[in-house]
Every structure is written in C-alpha cells, then in structure tokens.
C-alpha cells in the first residue's frame, strides 16, 4: 500500500467541500482528514500534532483568509504543502500566492483529472502551476517594476531624458505623464542623489556610470 496523501479542505462553502470530498473519495491514495470552513479552524488542526500533507486552501474565507493562512503555514516551518483553490483567475492573486509559498494554484472549476494530478505532483514535492495559470502569473509579473536600484525604473528613465537636455514639459509629453509628475520625480531623484541641481545630478550620475 502506497503512502496515503493526507489532505484537508478549507473552504467556507459546505456544498463545495462536500462536492470536492465526493470527487476525491474515488481516489484511494488521497485521504481527506478534515473539512474546515475558515482559516482559524484550519490553523487549530495544523497546530495540533496531526500529520497533514496537503491543504486545499480557498482564499476568500471568514475570520482568517487564505493569504493569512499561507503566511502562518510558512511560519510553522513544517512539511505541509498548501494548494490554493480559488475562484480568482487573475495574475496578481496567483503571483501573490506563489510568493507566499503556495505549492500550486487551481481554479475551483478545474477538472477532476488536473486536480488529482496536481495533488499527486505536489505531494511529490513539485510545484504545480498549469500553463494557463503560469501565463497569467508571468504576464502580471512582467508589468511589475521591480527595481533593486536606488532609483525606480521611472526615475532612471527620467534621469536619462534629463541628461539629454529635455525640458520637463518635453519629458512629460514623451512619458505620458503630467508635468507635475515629472517635477515630483525630479525632486525625488535630486533628493536620493543628495544634490541640489540638475548640473550636480548629471555629474554624480556620470561618476557612478548610471548614464
């Protein structure tokens, strides 16, 4: 007898829990230990000594929602692997869950086959994000400006245009923002470089090979 996958369903909709449990019952290698309606209830179980492999976690729940649960699980430092199962199909939800330690992301209307495949995969220690889900996540992340530099991407762009000698108005038109936005960015850049005017700014930026 192969190892049973010990699983908990956390969702506030009873009907959904029942349906899901019904579905998974057909598979012998998956054992549903418990169904809970909110995050608080779930954490009580996880904090007890009961062994749990996988949590099918809904995001929208009363008392404690899915994100909070993910954070708590991360803090537990256990082998519990959460799979998010949600109605939300947008990239930012997926990305956030992935960031917070979810092993997989499934939409609630996912087909049985994929659901079971995902559970088994995750149980093996792999992460499961379907191609559709992955694309949504990557699309979202590609638009995020993640800058490790002192300056934000926008500020870098503006600095480049300032060094080319463009006026605030010209930069605003080029970057599709208001002149006041550019002025505010410029003030922010000057502050970050600890300089007083544009000439000093360009000198310092050249010194550190920023432009």
């Amino acid at each position: 007898m192969m190892n049973e996958i010990k699983l908990i369903i956390a969702d506030d909709h009873e009907l959904f829990r029942i349906g899901l449990a019904e579905l998974l019952k057909k598979h012998d290698d998956i054992k549903i230990i418990k169904s809970v309606a909110d995050g608080v209830e779930l954490m009580e179980i996880l904090n007890s000594q009961i062994q749990v492999d996988i949590v099918l976690l809904d995001l929208t729940m009363p008392n404690m929602d899915g994100f909070q649960v993910l954070r708590e699980i991360k803090n537990l430092n256990s082998n519990i692997k959460p799979i998010v199962i949600s109605m939300h199909s947008v990239g930012n939800y997926i990305a956030k869950c992935a960031k917070m330690g979810a092993y997989g992301y499934l939409l609630k209307n996912t087909d049985e086959s994929e659901l079971v495949f995902a559970i088994r995969n995750v149980y093996k220690g792999k992460k499961h994000f379907s191609s559709e889900i992955s694309e949504k996540m990557i699309n979202f992340m590609s638009t995020q400006s993640i800058s490790e530099n002192v300056l934000s991407n926008k500020e870098n762009e503006i600095l480049g245009l300032i060094s080319k000698g463009l006026t605030t108005k010209e930069i605003a038109a080029k970057l599709f923002v208001s002149t006041r936005t550019i002025e505010t960015h410029r003030t922010s850049i000057l502050k970050k470089f600890e300089v007083k005017n544009t000439a000093e700014l360009i000198k310092k930026a050249t010194e550190i090979n920023l432009i």
Partner: peptide, 17 residues
C-alpha cells in the same frame, strides 16, 4: 463570485461524481 461561483463548482463536482 463567492456565492454563486461555488454553487456552480459544486454542480461541476456533482457532475464529475
């Protein structure tokens, strides 16, 4: 989203089962 949606997913599970 959170009310009607789950009913429909439950319906789907029912169909699967």
């Amino acid at each position: 989203h959170d009310g009607l949606g789950p009913y429909l997913t439950s319906l789907k599970h029912y169909i699967e089962n």
